[in-house]
Design a protein around this nucleic acid. Structure first.
Lengths: 224, 224, 224, 224
DNA sequence: CATGAATGAGGCTTCATTCAT
DNA sequence: GATGAATGAAGCCTCATTCAT
């Protein structure tokens, strides 16, 4: 993509000081992604992160109020980044079927190594998303977080995919339910593929891709 | 169902002493379900549980090594209980379409109040399942837990539903992927319905039920 | 007094576990009095107390929720103890003037070394009272603390002294205001005597005793 | 009073840079009074003050070495201001009884809203005095502070009131003890009136004023 | 078998301050 | 002179667990 001077924005209430704006902030983000991947979020602490990136724990608190908001920052960043990638993958394309196929390839395929946002390893980030994003959804403060707009990125992403679904079949009644089914389902099945493989049908070469294409194709064609 | 003298079994490695076998054990289970529902699992501790049910924390350690295994016990119990309910709802029925419909009604409908296992409030338990079960899937010890058979109940449930799917359409290539999509999807969408309702399409009276029926019907009829 | 097997009671909400009931608890009380005297309450922490009495910080938390409640415990103990001493000093005495004189001697004189409550050094405790008791009065949580009865001991003490004042002069309209003026004034002037002596008139041998006797005598005689 | 171009002086050792001399300094003083009133001194920090008045904490350090000296500055300012008001209230008056009455009305009555020193809200300041001034008296550094003259304002105030007392009755042996009894007592009883009202005798309409007048009148007339 | 008592380790956060610009 | 960035140290508290009875 080259150097486009673009930045992924997340709701400012997620951070105290924008980590984008300093070397230390970017170091925190980079280290956090790596360490959450290694330890799991439960065992991740600011103290360990400080040791890992050789920065005092207290300095991290200048950027994030607590580890939950740091996780939420990462996930929001991911949603907004994915929204942007979906946007790029469908721009200038006429055929809605082709658009959906591009989206599926994007979310089902490997994240490419070609990193645009230098301090964020998108591949590593997308590795922690399936396991950790549920932790921001299923928690007792969700109503508070909704008020602060922490889910707007997710909603935007769902609505963008829903839009393409409706282009294919304007009569389809459940575009959002189908979008979340695909997006969350892919996360889950990828994780099962690695950890509970007996739950993945091995009837084709690429069962995950084939299953979702089959699911979408049949759902959308029927009601037309 | 009356008094059948039946018990839901979970892998013995999940507990130190079977809570089924003593009044204190049943009190622990009952209190744990209620308290996890109130506090969320993150904020749930044996100390708080002890205060809640007026039992010393050390006594709880007689039954469970730690709070993660207690949660795993509850979730395994839930899977096995649901597997049993699915079994009951399909027994003696000839028509596979009717079987699947019964299963859907079971997982989509309300849990009835008629409790068979007196110390377990199944309704309360099924309330905590969507938010907390992900925490046992997405954790770093999953490989260890798999070896101890902690996911066998879940697999049995998935395979039972898959069996019915194959009865309807023996050629359908993704019965397990479809089963997990339904089971996990329902959990998720129910939660969205409560907390992120803008993500639920409101095009029919019962969007969740209609969406899943639509999805399944079209997936299974097509390949026949 | 000999071994009377009596105990000074304080509101149970002040402690988690009654320090009276274990050797460790008594060690905590003894050490706390000494350390607050040395450091001042502001600089006193459970961590330092733990080091001082060679006990883990966490063990102290089994007895007291925080250092403020520990201080409140000590002050309540002091009020109740002083109330008991005032009671003892007036029992079986007919002449109300003599009663008041005994009370004044008690609060103005030195605390005797003859300790009845072995783990509490009453002399050391009464040294920290003037400087630290204000901290429990003047704080933002006072309304909450009132509800829990944390000031009942103080009120009882004031009312006991007020009762004697009314015995001397039943028409005196301000017995409680005079009692608090004496009790709090003595604390303050003792402290001034040590730290700001230029504010103490040195016109008699025992200015503090003489001032308060003069004050009381003239207030009570006039309205008779 | 109009614009008199007068300034209340406090010992220069209390500050690094005189807050009187800059807009930022006056903002700090104004904000500090408000925030100490809201939070209590214990919970008051330069960080919170900085956020409150939208100034970096580091800027506050240009004016005050720490929060204790800032509090001491405020209290010294209050003492000197009250000393000045007492002076104004007795100037050109012949009758010493009238002088004392004016002083009593001053310290017992409400602080008027007519502010002379624009950046200091004297009413708000006098609200925090009863609860917070004890904190500067009862602390372990008092000897050091005495050497730096931090209590000279208080002494001046006490000596001014003592002077009037001696004018009324030159033979009265405890003018300073009586002055501190009145001054500190009023602070205390006002606080009790709000927070522990059961300790205030309600035998007259204005028990506080009547109690102190009764106390002073009887003390001073007797020895004449 | 159940419990009361105790504790080491560490999580989470704020404080008070300094430094470089 | 004012400020933004950074940080070492410590405060406060809970956790998960063990041990002795």
């Amino acid at each position: 993509m080259g150097n486009l001077h673009i930045t992924i924005q997340v709701p400012p209430a997620l951070y105290i000081k924008n980590p984008d704006t300093s070397a230390l902030g970017r170091k925190i983000i980079k280290g956090a992604i790596e360490l959450i991947d290694r330890l799991g979020f439960e065992n991740f602490t600011f103290k360990k992160l400080g040791e890992y990136i050789k920065v005092p724990e207290s300095s991290i608190y200048r950027y994030f109020k607590n580890k939950h908001l740091l996780l939420f920052y990462l996930i929001n960043w991911y949603w907004n980044w994915l929204d942007y990638k979906v946007y790029l993958s469908t721009i200038n394309i006429e055929n809605p079927d082709k658009k959906l196929e591009n989206i599926l390839n994007l979310v089902l395929g490997d994240i490419d190594e070609d990193r645009v946002f230098s301090h964020i390893n998108e591949k590593a980030l997308s590795k922690i998303i399936p396991s950790e994003s549920v932790k921001v959804f299923y928690n007792k403060q969700i109503e508070e977080e909704k008020k602060q707009g922490f889910f707007e990125g997710y909603k935007s992403l769902i609505k963008r995919i829903s839009g393409v679904i409706l282009e294919i079949n304007p009569a389809y009644p459940f575009p959002q339910l189908l979008s979340t089914t695909i997006l969350e389902g892919i996360n889950r099945e990828r994780y099962y593929d690695e950890h509970l493989p007996s739950l993945i049908d091995k009837t084709t070469d690429q069962p995950l891709i084939d299953f979702y294409k089959h699911l979408i194709f049949n759902s959308l064609k029927q009601t037309k």
